[in-house]
Simulated assay, not measured.
Amino acid sequence: MSRTDFATIDWRGRPVRIECQWIDPERGAGTPLIVFLHEGLGSVAMWKDFPARVCEAAGARGLVFSRPAYGRSTPRAEDEIWDVDFMHRQAHEVLPALFTALKLGDEKPWLFGHSDGGSISLLYAARFPDKVEGLVVLAPHIFVEDKTVANIEIARTAYRTTDLPQKLGRYHDSADSAFWGWNRIWLHPPFRDWNIEAELGTIRCPVLAVQGIDDEYGTLAQIRDIAPRVAGICELLEIPECGHSPHRDQPDRVIVATASFITNNRRQTP
């Protein structure tokens, strides 16, 4: 069972409404809570039924939310331009504010992040190592690669010349808000130096890093460089016949791996 709510946080000097979907909250506080963080163009709706399937397999509760500018959350202000630290601000400011607004208290969630959401998950666990139970990150970015930028340039052309805005409009109150916030910062020349490798050393929780061998937005170095840097358990899963979205290309493989990882690494609540 799931339900959709909205939470309001204060961010960037204004109230921001955050779209949230709870999955199986009736399972109770003794079960793991998995928080799903979407990709650079994602939203609650774009996950479809995948979070519910993960929670069912893991015996967990779930929280799916749309970051500011995405889905049914408050769109970007017209003059709001994201800077190189935009993922840091999501991890260090938005996520803690959301957890406070939702009254999670001392509960330590599992973070399940895809692409930009994976990077944000890593940054949150690095800044707040005692506030997260574990991480599952799909196709995260820890530094910028040429192939990533090249494909984001292709996406810009598609947005300008195809029906991509209409397609994204099915999932976002403002497709322009979602697309240009993400696209402009990734193609901003100073962003080429963005790199979070040095920050990963403070992560102490278990980490499962997943990537498709055919990922068009990054090489396998993105997850292989995580393992030697984190302080705790880190397992890698490299999936053949899989691109940048393992949860869409190989959902069953990802669900089984996630449920097993959580079961094997969760701390039991008395």
Rank of each mutant, 00 (worst) to 15 (best):
M1R: 14
T8A: 09
D10A: 11
R12E: 11
G13P: 05
R17Q: 14
I18E: 04
C20E: 03
Q21W: 04
W22D: 12
P25R: 10
E26H: 13
E26L: 12
F36I: 04
E39Y: 07
E39Q: 12
G42E: 12
V44G: 05
A45V: 02
W47K: 02
F50Q: 06
F50C: 08
P51M: 03
P51S: 05
V54R: 00
A57D: 09
A57K: 06
A58W: 02
G62Y: 03
G62D: 08
V64Q: 04
Y70Q: 08
G71F: 05
R76A: 15
D79A: 13
W82I: 02
D83T: 11
V84D: 14
D85R: 10
F86L: 10
H88V: 06
R89P: 03
E93D: 15
V94H: 05
L95V: 14
L95T: 06
P96M: 09
L98D: 02
F99T: 06
T100S: 14
L104I: 12
G105K: 11
D106T: 14
E107R: 15
W110I: 07
L111T: 04
G113E: 08
G113S: 09
G113F: 05
H114W: 14
H114C: 04
S115Y: 00
G117E: 03
L123R: 07
Y124D: 03
A125L: 10
R127Y: 00
P129Y: 04
D130L: 12
D130E: 15
K131V: 00
E133W: 02
A139I: 03
P140V: 03
P140F: 00
I142D: 02
D146H: 13
D146I: 06
T148E: 11
A150K: 15
N151G: 07
N151Y: 08
A155G: 02
T157H: 05
Y159Q: 00
D163I: 06
D163L: 06
L164F: 08
P165T: 10
P165E: 11
L168M: 15
G169Y: 05
G169S: 12
R170A: 14
D173S: 10
D176S: 08
D176R: 03
A178R: 01
A178K: 00
I185A: 02
I185R: 04
I185G: 01
H188D: 15
P190C: 11
P190R: 13
F191D: 09
F191I: 07
R192G: 03
W194T: 09
W194G: 04
W194R: 07
N195V: 08
E197F: 02
A209Y: 00
A209C: 01
V210L: 01
I213A: 11
Y217G: 04
A221F: 13
Q222N: 13
I223H: 10
R224Y: 05
R224D: 13
D225W: 07
I226M: 13
P228H: 11
A231Y: 11
I233D: 10
I233M: 05
L237D: 06
E241D: 15
E241T: 15
G243H: 10
G243F: 11
Q250N: 12
P251T: 10
P251C: 09
V254G: 01
I255Q: 09
I262T: 05
N265V: 09
R266M: 14
R266Y: 07
Q268L: 14
